[in-house]
């Protein structure tokens, strides 16, 4: 009886569906996946609507707000002057941080950052390092003496699954929006002088974009999972690629196994997604420029 429920054909009362969803969430999702669709009306390989807003925080050096469906992530970038490390005197550095505060979902508790937030921060740090989205040499002002540190704080404001993808888009858009003031070092006194009026954008070399998947019942692949789908799935997978189809990260934290062929499908979906996002970012940046 339960297996035969399908919204498109039989007229079922909405309250019944609601109770069904609460009582048997897994069966509820299965009944949709059997018909190759999802409870929110998407196809299996369809992303939720992604919207982007850049430069909304004027106190930050660069900022972006990304919404993927209900999931909302804001990224603010603050640049500070610092001394380069001894090991890399010709390089600046980037410090990413992902925050999942209790305001974004009732599943997070107040207190120090949880495991998921720390894992996400590390994931973002790895993507930045492997993709060299910015050449850290560009952040050096005076070798061994002065460099920029970019603090990239990504904060989830509404958690409905797939934060990693949203974080990467927010980070990339915020970096593209970042304007650093010009710094000159006085050779006689060795003191830096900052010209706040003259600002330059950063040179973005690569455009890494993450695409996340969930595996249902060991076989069905769905893209861009919601929070509910994430909690019911048997495995998760995140692919990061750039515009030249180079892979920067393939992250599959445990769960059920995945065949090589399925993995190829994921990668080709990820490259398509990369194009969509890069187009979106360029469009938004262009519209901001023309508005000014």
């Amino acid at each position: 009886m339960i297996g035969s429920v399908c919204v498109t054909q039989s007229p079922v009362s909405p309250s019944f569906l609601l109770h069904f969803r609460t009582a048997e969430p897994l069966e509820y999702h299965r009944s949709f996946l059997k018909e190759n669709c999802r409870p929110d009306g998407r196809e299996l390989s369809e992303f939720r609507t992604t919207t982007l807003n850049i430069g909304s925080i004027s106190t930050a050096d660069g900022s972006a707000l990304v919404k993927v469906g209900n999931t909302t992530v804001i990224c603010g970038i603050k640049a500070e002057l610092a001394n380069p490390t001894v090991e890399a005197p010709g390089k600046g550095y980037i410090v990413p941080n992902v925050d999942l505060p209790p305001l974004c979902s009732s599943r997070f508790r107040p207190g120090p950052p949880g495991e998921q937030a720390q894992a996400a921060s590390q994931f973002i740090a790895d993507v930045i390092e492997s993709s060299e989205v910015i050449q850290t040499e560009d952040l050096c002002i005076e070798r061994g003496k002065l460099c920029w540190v970019l603090y990239c704080d990504m904060m989830c404001l509404d958690y409905d699954g797939n934060v990693l993808d949203a974080c990467v888009v927010a980070l990339l858009a915020a970096l593209k929006n970042t304007q650093l003031p010009e710094v000159t070092v006085n050779t006689e006194t060795c003191t830096p002088g900052v010209t706040l009026e003259k600002r330059h954008g950063l040179r973005i070399n690569k455009h890494p974009v993450a695409t996340s998947f969930c595996i249902f019942d060991d076989s069905i692949l769905i893209v861009d999972p919601t929070a509910e789908e994430e909690s019911l799935a048997t495995a998760q997978l995140t692919v990061v690629t750039d515009e030249e189809d180079r892979l920067y990260s393939l992250h599959k934290p445990g769960g059920t196994s995945l065949s090589g062929q399925k993995l190829q499908e994921c990668i080709s979906r990820a490259t398509a997604r990369q194009r969509e996002i890069q187009k979106l970012i360029n469009k938004v940046i262009h519209s901001v420029k023309t508005a000014q």
């Binding site: 925080i57 106190t59 930050a60 900022s63 804001i74 603010g76 970038i77 603050k78 500070e80 941080n97 505060p101 209790p102 305001l103 107040p110 603090y151 704080d153 904060m155």
Partner: peptide, 12 residues
């Protein structure tokens, strides 16, 4: 709980 985003002020 009151909190301020790290990028909300002129100084981080």
């Amino acid at each position: 709980q009151y909190s301020m985003a790290t990028f909300s002020t002129a100084e981080r």
